[in-house]
Amino acid sequence: MENRLFVCSSPHLRDNVSTRRIMLDVIIALIPATIAGIIFFGMRSALVVVATVAASVLTEYIMRKGLGRGQTISDLSAAVTGLLLALNLPPSIPIWIAVVGAVIATGLIKQLFGGLGQNFMNPALGARAILTVSWARWMTEWTDPLFVDAVSTATVDAVSTATPLGVLKEGGASTFSYLDMFLGNVPGCIGETSALAILLGLAYLLFRRVISWHIPTFFVGTVALSTWILGPGGVFTGDPLYHVLSGGLLIGAVFMATDYATCPMTRKGRIIYAIGCGALTVLFRLYGSMAEGVSFAILLMNIVTPMIDRYTVPVAFGGEKHVE
């Protein structure tokens, strides 16, 4: 027989999207929040970012090598995990704790469960949860942003201060303006304080079609609606804007809850999941012992995701609903 041509099953045409490009887009979308963190909390934030990204990528490299699998660091997902973790840590976190967090995120939560796409919970959030319960003191110690109004706080270079949500939890009256909260000029995790920076990232992700609007909208919408209804002075006395702009809600709703591997597959499932995330966040924030509840809300919904997927199998076009 003559030289055979190459054959394979159709389709023979592929879109030019790639996993690496998607991960790169997420990194690009996180740049504004990273820069905001460095502006508001100083160069130490940059050190935390570098440490977690490096530790995360190195962990992935060593794990893949140790497990005898092909190298995957070029897909950039380890870098994304490291970056997301850094943005969810307080600026004053000891570097070694941040590194431990990165090892937990990439090594334990991601690689031990099979690597990219196989983890059942968001690696960065899972690591953050472990750090929060293991090193509670360091994880809840907040730094004032560099541009804080000296009048509003007792000490200029305060090591410990309260976040907007912390103030709320203690029943105090907030001194933070909506503008400062929107810009990010309030205490909090490195990447979570600036709503503006996160919204810029969201716009980019939507533009690049990396994510759809459903999860952020339903997540934030549920929180806004519920906190408004369940106000401290009775029904409809809450301050939804304060809740939306404070804590990790926006970064959680835009970057963490939308993690492909740990959110449901279908649009319907994703809406159910986002509403669940919002409801749990409100439950933890208003009635829990900790000030913040976004990360635990998302982690819990991560665990529910397979069940949501199971009950939201779509009906085929022209098909009948499958009877369970």
Binding site: S18, I22, Q118, A261, T266, P314, A316, F317, G318
Partner: peptide, 24 residues
């Protein structure tokens, strides 16, 4: 004409959105 290298599924759901028959 070559077959592209297969990477792990990241569950992005693009295939679900693309399926004209509404499958997974």
């Amino acid at each position: 004409g070559d077959l592209p290298e297969e990477w792990p599924c990241i569950r992005c759901g693009k295939c679900i959105q693309a399926c004209p028959m509404n499958l997974l």
